[in-house]
Design a binder for these strands. Sequence first.
DNA 1: CTCCAGGCTGAGC
DNA 2: GCTCAGCATGGA
Length: 298
Amino acid sequence: MEMTGKTVPFVDMADGITRIGPVNSFDPTHTFLCGQCFRWNRTESGDWLGVAGSRAMRLQWDGRRLTISGATPEEVRTFWIPYLDLEADYPKWKENLSASDAVMAEAVAFGAGLRLLRQDPWETLATFLISQNNGIPRIRTIVDALCRCFGEPIPFEGSTVYAFPSPNVLASLDACEMDVCRAGYRNAYLLKTSRQVAEGEVDLSRLSALPYREARDSLLTLHGVGVKVADCALLFSGIHRSAFPVDRWVLRVMNALYPGSGSTTESLQGFARERWGVMAGLAQEYLFHYARVKKIGI
DNA sequence: CTCCAGGCTGAGC
DNA sequence: GCTCAGCATGGA
C-alpha cells in the first residue's frame, strides 16, 4: 500500500542533514535519468549530486527514505520538496493511468519511481533549446560547460559548483564567447532567446498564470522554440502538466499501440490530451522512459 | 564512411 | 497553409 496525500514525513537531523520519508513512488534513477533534467550525477558511492537554480544538494536514497545534505531543513521544506514534487499524489495518478490500458500500465510499472520535477523555467527552457536534434549525454556536456563558464559559483562541500547562467548574462555574450559550450547552431537560438527574455519580451514568471495554450504560444515567439521545446519547458518546470512534448520515441510507441490514432504530432497530442487529460505530459514521460530504456539501454 | 540524437528555421511551393 | 533541406557536433 502506497502513501497518498500531501503530507511528507520530515525529520530534521541537524548538522545540515534532513531525512524525508517514507516516500513511495520515488526512485532517483527514474526521476533523474528519464531525460527531463541534465544536472544530476550519481557518485561512486551511489549518492546523487544535483544543482537546481542557485542551489546544490547531495541526496541519498535507501529505497524508502531520502537523506539530504548540503541544504538547511528550511531549504528542504520550501525548495527541495516542491522541486522533487514529493507532495503530489503519484500513487493515485499511476493508478488512473494504468487503468487506461495495459501498455500504459507496463510503462508506469517500469518507471514507477519517476516524478516530474519543478525546475526553474528559464533553466528548463534553455536546456531544452539546447536539446533539439541532440543526444542526452552531449546535452549534459553543453549545459555543464555553460554553467562553468557563465554561471554564478555556488560553494558546495568545500568545492564549487555553478548555477545555470541567467538570461541577462547570456544576453551579454557574443556568438564567439558562447561557442565554448560547443552547442553548434543552437548558439544563435540561445543568444537570441536570452535577449528576448532579458528584454522582457516574454515574462517567464507569468506563464503559470496563463492557460496552457496561451503559455505555449507565448514561448513560441522565442527564437529556436518550437512546440516540442515549449512543451518540455512547461512540463518539466511544473507549470503545465498537460503539456505533451511528443517526440520520435513516443511517436513510434504510440503509433504501434494505437494505430490510427494519428501519425502527426498534433493529432497524437489531441489524442493524448483527450485520453489522459491533465496527466498527458506525465503519461508521455512514462512512455518515453520505457521506450528509450527498453530499446537502447540507459 | 554513414547514421543518429528529447527539432527548428526559412525558403519554395 | 504545407514540405523539406540545412543545420554543428560528437558518438556509434
